[in-house]
């Protein structure tokens, strides 16, 4: 025991030889994660000709043409900023709906006893195993039948029913919810809905924050449903613009393409880095069913 402590304190930065070997391996793996994203960023600052000519270590460096590339993207009719705000609107509304109604559903399951509760919860759990693609054609038909083709409603509204979010929030509420809090409010004459908004939502805040981030990322990245139903380019979300950029194969403007990719990815990376601790611990909580 003593011996181990001594060896551990030796070496550079308090790390022994073994720690250093692992550290280098970890750095290599981190390099693998970041390298493609780095290339995306560096290429977005180069003209297409520079991208085609370049090779070797030079490609890691930055140039100065990012805004030229963005301008060329806009000139070619790729309304990437319109797409950005469309994505932002859809992601924010979906997130608000998802988190609010998931919390409401979770509280309904945790705080009350009613007939059919177990069956309903079993149904909710079962939906997590059903592949989304099973309902793909039916969903498309439904959207057409309801006259919602080329609208955002069928992209936003379904976020009310997110089984994984409900499951996570239910797990969380089971540990934090105390009947006494609610009872006290009831004695004071508070309505149930009021109790939910003023007591249950605040005590769930940490879990809501984590789930809001996941929900936002999910909505922001959503690709297949908008691909199926969005038709007019003024309604395109960012992934659909990426699809259009990808399809534009004659005389590819690589600089503009990489700039478009950066604009889709950048906001997510910023959100992620700001909330990374929340997110990393959120995954841990979500995965461990205790």
């Amino acid at each position: 025991m003593k011996k181990k402590n001594v060896t551990a304190r030796k070496g550079l930065w308090g790390m022994g030889v073994k720690d250093w070997i692992w550290f280098v391996i970890c750095v290599l793996l981190a390099f693998m994660c970041l390298f493609p994203l780095w290339l995306m960023l560096s290429n977005s600052t180069r003209t297409t000709i520079q991208i085609q000519q370049i090779g070797g270590a030079e490609s890691l460096l930055f140039s100065t043409h990012f805004f030229d590339n963005v301008a060329s993207l806009l000139n070619k009719g790729f309304d990437i900023f319109g797409g950005f705000f469309n994505s932002l609107f859809i992601a924010i509304t979906s997130t608000v709906l998802c988190v609010y109604f998931s919390a409401l559903t979770a509280y309904g399951f945790v705080g009350y006893q009613f007939i059919g509760k177990k069956v309903l919860f079993a149904v909710l759990m079962a939906t997590m195993l059903i592949p989304g693609q099973l309902g793909m054609i039916g969903w498309y038909q439904l959207v057409v039948d309801l006259g919602m083709y080329d609208s955002w409603t069928p992209l936003i509204l379904p976020s009310i029913a997110s089984a994984t979010t409900v499951f996570f929030l239910k797990q969380y509420l089971e540990t934090t919810y105390s009947k006494d809090l609610v009872e006290a409010a009831r004695i004071d004459g508070a309505k149930e809905f009021y109790t939910f908004n003023t007591i249950i939502l605040p005590i769930s805040a940490p879990a809501l924050a984590t789930q809001a981030i996941f929900s936002f990322v999910y909505a922001w990245n959503n690709y297949l449903p908008p691909l199926m139903i969005l038709n007019s380019s003024s309604k395109y979300t960012l992934p659909i613009w990426i699809h259009q950029l990808n399809a534009d194969t004659h005389e590819v403007d690589f600089g503009a393409l990489y700039a478009g990719l950066v604009i889709t990815v950048f906001p997510l990376v910023v959100v992620y880095l700001v909330f990374s601790r929340f997110i990393v611990s959120g995954i841990a909580l979500g995965g461990v069913k205790e």
């Binding site: 705080g111 939906t127 059903i130 509204l157 379904p158």
Partner: peptide, 29 residues
């Protein structure tokens, strides 16, 4: 108890319309 039912209702209404119905529709198609 009835409030519990009311609180979980929006989830299941949306689930029925946008998830279960499309699945059944697909199977029928």
């Amino acid at each position: 108890g009835i409030y519990g039912f009311i609180f979980v209702l929006p989830f299941f209404v949306v689930f029925l319309i946008f998830q279960l119905y499309p699945i059944l529709y697909s199977i029928i198609l």
